[in-house]
Amino acid sequence: MPTDTLRPRSAPGVGGPYDDGPRSPRTVRLITAGRVLARSGAALSWVAVIVGALATIVPFLWMLGVAFRTNSDLYADPARLIPKHWTLHGVHAVVSQLPFGRLVVNTFVFAGGTTLLLLLFDSMTAFALARLKFRGSNVVFLLILATLMVPFQVTLVPVFLTLFHLGWLNSYQGLIVPRATSALGIFLLRQFFMQLPRELDDAARIDGANDFTLFWRIILPNAKPVLASLFIIQFAALWNDFLWPLVVTNNVDMQTLPAALTLFSSQSGVDHAALMAGAAISLSPLAVAFLVLQRWFVQSVATTGIK
């Protein structure tokens, strides 16, 4: 488990062998013309990697730029990244039409609450699937895996009707509960739990621990990194989900920020600043969190993925 992805000292072999590899006596002899070729190839590949990285970032910089420039400034020179004439009109158009504070609170309640509940339920299920023996575990696992393959649009209408019958439309529980488990989460956690040493269970059981203490006191504390990764992945996914909150709620006081901001991305007018401001605002909390926690973020996603 690469808990130290980004730290130089964690690379076990102290760098050397990865890119070009240590040169054995035999290969050294071959390095003449080939070396020049390889060198220029390496240089080219670095150029490609850097250009690619710019291509991932420039769109977001441009989005920010457009959010703060006037339309005529944009039309005059679309090749500029940085506005010549600054305006807060776009941000103002977005903020003035929405109950901003309420939306931010809702988004945190929805994305945060759902993610926490999801972590609990998913880890419980994953624990049972990975560490306990019970009849039907294969079927349960396969069924859970199969749900990963269902487009949301397929279940939208039936789910809506179910929520209606439960009386959960327009409520926090309606927003949160149906999303509080995820096949992906169970899948990832199960993989992780299976790799924890069995000795942990054995030692705990000798001390008289039952399944619940084992889960709560031993397995969960050992799973902190993977839980953190899952938290981030799910939190981002739920934060970005706009269709679900729009379907479950029908007044703006219950909606989430990205859901409410779709108003600005759906209009076909020519107000580019408002459109990009809306996009930027919905992205910015995640972006700030990501940049601040960037080391931890990148590394924790990595933790999840490898299993």
């Binding site: 009849r135 039907g136 294969n138 079927v139 069924l143 179910t162 209606f164 019958h165 439960l166």
Partner: peptide
């Protein structure tokens, strides 16, 4: 999949059926 026993289908199906029944019951309450 392969190295687990297969006789668990019945129980899982029952669990699923129970879940579905619960949802249907709940559905009747609205």
């Amino acid at each position: 999949v392969s190295h687990r026993r297969i006789h668990g289908y019945g129980r899982a199906a029952a669990a699923l059926a129970a879940a579905t029944t619960v949802s249907l019951l709940l559905a009747g309450c609205g």
